[in-house]
């Protein structure tokens, strides 16, 4: 494997966003790119990252390899990069280590680190292609604020999507709260748009603790996409350049 990423910062942000959910992960490398799929210990949330080969320049992966990496170790090494550094990931066949080289674009500084790999026997989930009943795009910062605000009142949020808009509501010991968003187009600042694409009304309840955790990815993308269908896991997607993405799935809470 040899994969050069124009911005080391991208991988750093991904790792920062997921490392509280999952600890040891396989980075599956093949000629289409670098993918990661891991569930949290409680089997409630799943992280699915895809960094397509187009996100790298150049990208070369001659044989499929799984790089088992402890994310805390990876985070420590990625913190050694300067924010504008270029990152090259390298691994040999049947590797013991993954090699990370940070290059400064405007100086001759070159730093190099090896991280020891681990054997990770990971359960892999097959995620069916789903036509969701509701697809909502909104500013990622807005979603983060809603989740944080409602978590002050309750452990859970009900997300209801109708043709009127999307309503996030909660009930807790001190009282209740809700935030409703309607479709909204801002021509000057499209990152502020709220787009609701609905085929049938949806109402689902989710744990706010996990949603707040997902929102650590807000720095990766100005917009977040929420995809919902009744009685299936929620998909929270942060789109990255070149069709790469960071996705989170969260199992719903369903009435007893």
């Amino acid at each position: 494997l040899e994969a050069r990423l124009e911005q080391a910062n991208l991988l750093k942000k991904v790792v920062d966003a997921i490392k509280d959910l999952v600890q040891d992960c396989n980075f599956d490398c093949n000629d289409s790119g670098i993918a990661l799929q891991a569930m949290d210990n409680s089997h409630v949330a799943l992280v699915s990252m895809m960094l397509k080969s187009e996100s790298f320049s150049p990208f070369r992966c001659d044989r499929n390899i799984a790089l088992g990496i402890n994310l805390t170790s990876l985070q420590k090494v990625l913190r050694c990069a300067n924010s504008e550094d270029i990152l090259t990931l390298k691994a040999e066949d049947a590797p013991d280590v993954v090699n990370l080289v940070f290059e400064s674009a405007d100086s001759d500084r070159l730093s190099e680190y090896d991280i020891k790999l681990m054997d990770i026997d990971q359960e892999h989930l097959g995620i069916p292609e789903t036509e969701y009943a509701a697809n909502i795009s909104m500013p990622s910062a807005e979603f983060q604020k809603i989740c944080r605000d409602l978590m002050a009142l309750s452990e859970s949020v009900a997300i209801e999507c109708t043709k009127e808009g999307v309503k996030f509501s909660c009930n807790g010991d001190i009282g209740s709260g809700s935030v409703t968003l309607r479709s909204h187009t801002n021509v000057d600042k499209p990152e502020n748009n709220v787009e609701i694409d609905l085929t049938e009304p949806v109402a689902l309840t989710f744990s706010l603790k996990y949603l707040v955790n997902f929102c650590k990815a807000s720095g990766l993308s100005g917009q977040v996409k929420l995809c919902l269908s009744n009685e299936v896991p929620l998909l929270v997607e942060y789109g990255l350049a070149s069709n790469s993405y960071l996705r989170f799935y969260l199992a719903p809470k369903i009435g007893d």
Partner: peptide, 14 residues
């Protein structure tokens, strides 16, 4: 109160 479901109830292990 609603109960937290497990993801493996929806997605199959492969």
């Amino acid at each position: 109160t609603p109960v937290q479901n497990d993801l493996t109830e929806f997605f199959v292990m492969v």
